[in-house]
């Protein structure tokens, strides 16, 4: 990276820093503050140090929820990223087809998350929902309120339906930003479609794909409203993801301490994974720099 070295660039960053810091730093400090105290009421607090953290880290149900969460987020990345790139490649480059495709792709993203869960409840009902009825008419028993596997399939389908469009839009914008000259050069060289994709389009999409992977990872790791509305974390605990478990813990508890400690741990886990992804994706970039 040959950039100009100039600390005056801070002047351009200060507005962003201030806007974000106002909303970020004080609440975070407050939560850290909760997490190390036992609060009985106003003015009655006891410093408990790392007790809440130890409690949270030793909680077996938290380990299970974390395991489910990791599996869920890995599946999300493995399905949505390749599918999103594939669809972005299929969308025409210009004309009315491109406009129409972009509008259609964006539709699922625009529905509030709690509504998405509610719509999918009906959509997947075997008696009055299109999806449930279609599966049942093929002779497959399907009921996401009783079978953990069906519940997982339903939540995954909903998640892929809802969020693949984000990857599509990012990948499509990344593809459109590649100058036409690259494709002309590839054509002259007689490069196959696969070679064009592998050596021109994919490396050029690295920036947007980094964002797509990080966003999909952190947002799927924090997923709450859709599965909560759809399955309520059940059947049993089979779709109780981390955030659902966190809210189950926090709600109805007078003391926010344990939930605050849980939140900090939660945050650190996401931070760790995102940092690892980010480092890995930067390294990939230096290998085949365009």
């Amino acid at each position: 990276m040959n950039k100009w070295e100039d600390n005056k660039a801070w002047l351009m960053v200060i507005p962003v820093f201030l806007v974000v810091a106002v909303s970020a730093i004080l609440p975070l400090m407050t939560v850290v503050n909760y997490s190390i105290q036992d609060i009985f009421g106003p003015g009655q607090r006891v410093f408990v140090g790392t007790e809440w953290y130890r409690e949270a880290l030793l909680d077996p149900r938290l380990h299970e929820a974390l395991g489910r969460q990791l599996l869920f987020s890995s599946l999300v990345l493995l399905i949505e990223i390749p599918l999103g790139i594939l669809i972005a490649l299929m969308i025409p480059k210009k004309g009315w087809g491109a406009s129409l495709s972009l509008v259609l792709v964006a539709l699922p993203l625009l529905i509030p998350w709690n509504v998405i869960g509610t719509i999918w409840i009906i959509f997947t009902r075997p008696d009055i929902g299109l999806f449930g009825a279609a599966i049942n008419s093929m002779g497959l028993p399907f009921d996401h309120t009783a079978s953990p596997l069906d519940a997982w399939i339903t939540v995954m389908l909903m998640e892929v339906w809802h969020w693949t469009p984000l990857v599509v839009l990012l990948a499509y914008a990344g593809l459109r930003a590649i100058p036409e000259a690259y494709f002309q050069a590839a054509r002259i060289d007689g490069a196959s479609n696969w070679a064009t994709f592998r050596y021109i389009q994919l490396p050029k999409m690295r920036g947007v794909l980094t964002i797509a992977i990080l966003l999909r990872f952190m947002d799927s790791f924090l997923i709450y409203a859709e599965p909560f509305v759809l399955t309520g974390g059940g059947p049993g605990n089979s779709t109780t993801f981390l955030s659902i478990y966190l809210v189950k813990q926090a709600v109805g508890q007078f003391d926010l301490g344990p939930a605050a400690a849980f939140s900090i741990i939660y945050f650190l886990i996401i931070l760790l994974f995102c940092w690892l992804f980010y480092q890995a994706l930067i390294k990939v970039g230096t290998g085949d720099k365009p």
């Binding site: 100009w4 070295e5 966190l246 995102c274």
Partner: peptide
Amino acid sequence: YTFLGDKHLFFWLLTNRMAPAAVF
């Protein structure tokens, strides 16, 4: 530009999307 703390600041920005909302 490269400037003092640029990489850290850049990544810190994104960390603000990583906190579970419920307790915050």
